[in-house]
Design a protein around this nucleic acid. Sequence first.
DNA 1: CGCTGGCATGTGGTATGCCAAAAACTTTCC
DNA 2: GGAAAGTTTTTGGCATACCACATGCCAGCG
Lengths: 243, 243
Amino acid sequence: MSLRKPTKALPNMAEADIAIVRIAPESSFKNKAYDALKEAILKMDIYSTPEPVMLDERALSERLGVSRTPIREAIAMLEQDGFVKTVPRRGIMVVRRTKSEIVDMIRAWAALESMAARLITTTARKKDITALRDFFKDFGKDRLPQDHVEEYSRANIAFHQALISLSESPVLVDLTNDLLLHVRGYRQLTIGRKDRTATSLPEHLGIIEALEARDTELAEKRARDHTLGLAAYVEAHGQELFG
Amino acid sequence: MSLRKPTKALPNMAEADIAIVRIAPESSFKNKAYDALKEAILKMDIYSTPEPVMLDERALSERLGVSRTPIREAIAMLEQDGFVKTVPRRGIMVVRRTKSEIVDMIRAWAALESMAARLITTTARKKDITALRDFFKDFGKDRLPQDHVEEYSRANIAFHQALISLSESPVLVDLTNDLLLHVRGYRQLTIGRKDRTATSLPEHLGIIEALEARDTELAEKRARDHTLGLAAYVEAHGQELFG
DNA sequence: CGCTGGCATGTGGTATGCCAAAAACTTTCC
DNA sequence: GGAAAGTTTTTGGCATACCACATGCCAGCG
């Protein structure tokens, strides 16, 4: 985002202090295609069909109304992200991750989140930490998470992302978001599971308490163990999702 | 050119065992360009000059002897990696990271490495762990690391990469390697510093000992603290490198 | 009937050319 | 002289054409 500060001096100019909001960079077709394809890939349920999902450059360029060039550049980017794999003269296939790959990603996520928790105990403001409770304010003894799985799942995701953000570490935020995107296809099927949901909420509250208490080691441990628990859960019960 | 490997049984045929050496996949220009540019970027000392380093598509395509198309695709990939930033009608600039970005990356690295250490204590073989000592076998009381900074720095890097690899987690390995590539420009100037080198070796040995003892918590803590120590060091003493 | 080899077709890979916007450079005019 | 206006050059963005190779279909030979 290299916002450009006034380079040359704009000589003798009133330079009215009107809020000139730097014209929208007008994203290129390449980036638009990237966003569109990424969203499409994340939206589709890759794991429902047994045969690999293939993409076709020409078909995509026609559907999006642009030439193949920006499409190819977008594909190249998606391939860097690991969402897609192109095989010369064969086609472009949407990558299907194995169970162990997903588990592996969740472990990395756990590592990053526990570091975020660690940092939060030393830098975040109390009010921001406490605000994390709001994500679950709609749930309680009279309204159990396991009875509103979809809704709880969204709150869950929002909580984790907010947590990481509190670390004020762009790297942790970005890396975690990337990992979550890959795991997302499973999110609906794992985090949302009733049997895990029951233990999830208390663990979240436990993390928040440790953060509020500024107990670095405990917060780190709880954050780590919570997400590692998800990894273990997927490892144990996720087989059915992979056939 | 259509060499065909024996697909079906080739009935009644002598099928002389001529050494057919499976034709090389012959990477595309796009990937060759990506590798070449990445190496070039990592090799150059981006932080030595004050003005930003710019790349030119046409110049590159001429230098590499290919058209602009594969170059542009390679650039798109490098941009995803965060090595480069292209600004429409301005140019492509090699990204210069700030001190706080580097520190942030090192923290993420610490998180991943401590998770790797955790996993190693439960899965790695003893001989593989012990083998980690070999990276430092050339150093000791009679041959101090701080007297051979360059050499020790290389051993240091190799050690960390080998450590992560022992986790047998592709995700941890890949993420860490990516982070290290970004930090590398600084490695020579930070990890190599004499004052840190002195404490580095004992810490490494301490990590190895904890791994051998299968002490999960301790190994995790030592791995984390060691790398966080580097982050703190850069944060404290790295200012001079950024002007 | 089955296997072989050629040909049509599909798909990604690469080369080129043109465009618009920004920057660099020139000219013009007070 | 110097600054504004005009012109050229530079640079990334995009479209298009063509290429090479992988596949699959199918005629033709044995």
